[in-house]
Design a protein around this nucleic acid. Sequence first.
DNA 1: TAGATTGTTAATCGATTAACAATC
DNA 2: TAGATTGTTAATCGATTAACAATC
Lengths: 214, 214
Amino acid sequence: MNKDFILRLTKYKRLIHKLKALGFEKVFSNNLGDAIGVTPALVRKDFSILHLSGNKRGGYNIDMLVEEFDRILGGNTPQNVIIVGCGRIGTALMQYSGFTSDDLTIVAGFDQNPKNVSNPSHVPIYGMDKLQDFIRENSVKVGVIAVPDSEASKVLDIMVEAGIRGVLNFAPVELKCSKYQCDSNCVIQNVNIALELEHLFYQINTQEINLERD
Amino acid sequence: MNKDFILRLTKYKRLIHKLKALGFEKVFSNNLGDAIGVTPALVRKDFSILHLSGNKRGGYNIDMLVEEFDRILGGNTPQNVIIVGCGRIGTALMQYSGFTSDDLTIVAGFDQNPKNVSNPSHVPIYGMDKLQDFIRENSVKVGVIAVPDSEASKVLDIMVEAGIRGVLNFAPVELKCSKYQCDSNCVIQNVNIALELEHLFYQINTQEINLERD
DNA sequence: TAGATTGTTAATCGATTAACAATC
DNA sequence: TAGATTGTTAATCGATTAACAATC
């Protein structure tokens, strides 16, 4: 329910898959904690919340963990994602290599002028008028918004109306919990690159100068 | 010092600039809290930590806030950023419109084959061999890493050695707090798009099925 | 003045950690 | 068995909030 908790789950999952690939058969809260940078106690607590139990002396069984984390985090069933807005960011994402390893598949792109988009990927790009039908017919659950900021909230409304449940927003507007999000339980995650860079500068500045000037 | 705290600072700053533009002269902790979604008490606490004081009845002076937040968050002095790796993500970022409004300027790109990069922006793209000298000569403080994951940690080392203080990493590897980061106080922020999407799927899944299966 | 708002202290809340009994 | 590790409880820690005296 907690953001940090969810982040840890994803890290556990990745780590456990790696360990499995390395031929490990069991692992201790100790090892897991070291690897993801938390205390062993927190690992045990987390696992306890998830009802994952180990052996008092033999640690946790890797096969069991792999299976359970796959179930909890949506498994290895490929997850379909659409990209709305095929400008620079949109097309860059379409070819992003980091996805395939995580069973995420970009199934389609949408743009106002699909014919103008240079498209070296094999992902089909449709006009915006096809967006709602596509979402409905393919039961798409998650979409990426990569349109100009002026279009973002309009696009969001369209997607939510069609039944989208999760949105990753790259438009430099913070898409807020509108009535739509609340009504329909659509989760919105904003990725604001300018904001991230500002954070960095802030952190650097405060390392040098102290917050309180005097 | 806290991640949430820093995030709030950035939100305060943006909001206050907007209010200033709207002609406001003063604002209450009440209003600020509503707008950024926190309690008025927290706003006052935050301001107190920053030594920003208001009037017992007249709230906080907008001009004062604008000035102070600009100082605290690095002001409106343009911040120079370089982009290392001019593949799809890198070039997309180079033309990203969200930057200009935040006084962030991409001053250069770097790539192994700068001549192969199609470069519709006006940002110069140099070979990787120029990276260290450029950072040193221009005192660049923050850089973006958008190279393939296999190159990421090598590139990080080079940048840190040249004196980079902050890195935004788009390569799908979690660049960890290596010896370099600790020695030289380089802040690393990882943006992992696949991870963000996984979060979304997880959140959606847990809305439907409860965590504990039984 | 009376009313409203700040600034700060103490209370609350939630997450993390330490500790340890249970037990393999 | 002795040693090691889990699972869970209680303690700790830090961030947020409530409350209220100070005061404009």
